[in-house]
Design a binder for these strands. Structure first.
Lengths: 204, 204
DNA sequence: CTCCTTAAGGTACTGGCGGTACCCTATCAG
DNA sequence: CTGATAGGGTACCGCCAGTACCTTAAGGAG
């Protein structure tokens, strides 16, 4: 056996791998330091030497699994672009990887420092950029008014998706919900932002 | 001293009161059974005889504080109605009472049975009805098209408010955010739902 | 008033957890 | 070869949820 004693990066990877496995197996609440140590074939000391808090290990383990793929779509129409992006997000969130993320988010309610790290992962950077790009293309095609390119509009579908996940339980959202979000809210809003009428539309 | 030994309802109220105080003082995570028992001047037995789980006590304690006021507004215009309702919700959520609710919601991520109870409290019933009433009045006044009276539209402002709370931290949302939610999203959406154009508005 | 059921009080315990201390030992740089 | 570094093993502290067991006050039935 070339066993020897693992050191440095090698051990660190082993710990992260073990932590990630515990995370997907038992959730954050079940990711015990002892269990991670045992699964990694080491002991708590080696873990605490690297991450001072259990929560820090949780975030690190999540990052270790998260592959941070940047979603890109370009189907040619606004509606199909939006639907596709939303479907990708739904698939991602309902995967084990997403379950871990949601679990971590819930668990880290009292650890404000870690919340920031997670929020970034939860759909901050790349995802938002994708929605902006989608809107810009729609404007270029004449499918949407220029006023629609706005942060709050771009973030809306993902916010609604999050809302649905918060409202319902764990399982993946049925596709009809995604279609509703797009057809009942997102697209009507974009249409409505074309009309700059501060005064009610009654009168007519 | 008329001390005596408290029994039945009297003791139950004392426990609930103590639990509620611990809840607002230290959050759900800090609401220890021992601390509740000590504050109530009793012991854990008396608590476990009534609530089999700590989470059950948490929910009961929350209900004990929650006053379940039904919000009602009627200012005469859609925009002011919506803004007022949203401001009330914001004030309620940023109050200690709201902090407890958000804390409980986060903590109960792995207790699905309790989630339902909390979700109801979190703005399910009465609040939704208020938004429906608001929309209906706007339609009656001619301020909104009848197509706007729809569950997803009614729930939208509260969903966005929740989204902002999830995104940012604890503190109360500044009023500009509420105004933006109404002016940039809610009202344009209602306007947009008047135009039933499945085909893009380009072409013109 | 007495007795007896009921429920509250007190205390101690189990088991699991996060986190720390201490000491032993393998590894690697010099 | 040697000494600093870091991994390994183990025991420990304090805290917590939940349980067991016994003592003691309260209140109703007779």
């Amino acid at each position: 056996m070339t066993a020897g004693r693992r050191r440095g990066v090698e051990l660190e990877r082993a710990i992260l791998r073990a932590a990630a496995e515990e995370l997907v197996a038992s959730g954050y609440a079940g990711m015990t330091m002892d269990k991670v140590a045992r699964r990694a074939g080491t002991n708590k000391n080696a873990i605490y030497r690297r991450w001072p808090q259990r929560a820090a290990l949780g975030v690190a383990a999540y990052k270790y699994v998260a592959d941070a793929r940047t979603p890109t779509v370009d189907t040619g129409t606004l509606r199909r672009d939006a639907l596709e992006l939303l479907r990708q997000a739904n698939a991602s969130w309902s995967s084990p990887h997403g379950a871990v993320l949601r679990d971590l988010l819930a668990a880290a309610a009292d650890e404000p420092a870690l919340l920031d790290l997670l929020r970034e992962q939860a759909g901050g950077g790349a995802l938002n950029a994708a929605w902006f790009a989608l809107l810009s293309r729609a404007v270029a095609r004449g499918e949407a008014p220029p006023e629609a390119v706005q942060p709050r509009v771009a973030a809306l579908p993902m916010t609604l998706l999050r809302g649905e996940y918060a409202l319902r339980g764990v399982p993946a959202l049925p596709d009809e919900v995604l279609v509703e979000i797009i057809d009942e809210i997102f697209l009507p809003l974009i249409r409505g932002r074309g009309l700059a009428c501060p005064v009610p539309l009654s009168a007519g």
